[in-house]
Design a protein around this nucleic acid. Structure first.
Lengths: 207, 207
DNA sequence: TTGTTATTGTGAAATAAATCACAAAAATCC
DNA sequence: GGATTTTTGTGATTTATTTCACAATAACAA
């Protein structure tokens, strides 16, 4: 079902999605590709090509139906098909992600958090319990979770990743700046916060 | 000085940088392109092409000097040339970013945080003071800051962005899911946390 | 009704990025 | 010293992405 959506496209799809949410809230029910393109500073034919991938036809002189677009973006990006995940590391970043209301609407279900700090264990964040990290292997198995969101300090990133691998976690969304070493069957997605911004900052700020 | 480094390249440069930090800590002083490539699951000639942009020659049968590579990545990405910034929104994400030790080493200097919650005002986070948002225009002017990192809840994103624009902020690093409307002279960088991950998650998890 | 205009959809062209393939260099081995 | 191997550097090729250009469509206005 889910085609090969290139990374750049799915990035734009989430931006389109935010605009759809905004338009819906404003009670506007159609939108045109030039409107979207101008808002994002991109080419309007690109917007149309992206929408083509969604199998969502527009209407000449009118544009696209906001509701339909929103739905098909959600379907294409798999918002519908909920995925369960654990947050590993209950520091500020872990807590911020646990509270991030958007995860849920994007189909990512945070079931619990893990930390090794006894002070944090058993606290509730956004209705999700913080467990001691030693409980993780058991809960991975019982709940069939295979995504871990890694938000521990850099120096613990590799040992904790090793522990996740041993616990049969299959996907690691890595928010730490460490480049993890994992066996080939485990997939890591590096959330490279600085990377893209630096390019932006350097291009414009340093001339 | 700073050439046009494409976004994808600067993304990879930060990953290379992390590997260099790790190798330096391990006391290893040379590294080869196939080693790096294998670690990141990319092509080794690409690593070499990226390093070409850094003007950093390697040595046949030996590889590259870790220290030199690290330095030239930092120079190219402008780590050296420190940039000052304010964090706007002292929720968990704002606090997490304020504590993110990596910002500093990447040349981004967080001078202060801003929030409208009187309870938070005057607190210190990682030695940075939280000010009431009303103090922002004055401090922007006095300190000559032109970067704002926006971490407020979605519903406040646009009005706060308007306020930042009126306060003469020139660059907004947008961590909210809202797509901001700003005049053309103000540059917005959308940190699209879900976008890239969804692609990763969908491709592999949903088949 | 008929012209005008805004908008989609899409091939073609241009641009950018990644991969391949291999010569040249230099360390190591025998 | 000469063969072998590892590794760089880089043109050539391939693949992916973006932009351009324009015909087709349908709303709207006179």
């Amino acid at each position: 079902m889910s085609k090969n959506i290139p990374e750049k496209v799915s990035n734009r799809l989430t931006l389109y999605h935010s605009i759809m949410v905004e338009y819906l809230e404003a009670g506007i029910d159609t939108i045109s590709s030039p409107q979207i393109a101008q808002r994002l500073g991109i080419d309007d034919s690109q917007v149309r090509k992206d929408f083509k991938l969604l199998n969502n036809a527009g209407k000449c002189r009118v544009g696209y139906l906001v509701k339909d677009l929103k739905d098909s973006i959600e379907k294409t990006l798999g918002f519908a098909q909920a995925k369960d995940a654990f947050i590993v590391g209950a520091g500020h970043l872990g807590l911020a992600l646990a509270k991030y209301d958007n995860f849920n609407s994007y189909g990512l279900n945070i079931l619990a958090l893990f930390d090794n700090d006894p002070q944090k264990v058993d606290m509730l964040v956004n209705n999700k319990q913080i467990f001691h990290i030693s409980k993780l292997p058991n809960l991975v198995e019982r709940l069939g979770v295979d995504i871990a969101i890694l938000t521990v300090p850099r120096q613990y990133a590799q040992p904790v990743a090793d522990f996740l691998v041993a616990s049969k976690i299959k996907y690691i969304w890595n928010f730490t700046p460490a480049v993890l070493k994992v066996p080939p069957e485990v997939k890591v997605w590096n959330e490279n916060i600085m990377g893209s911004f630096l390019q932006f900052a350097c291009k414009d700020i340093i001339q």
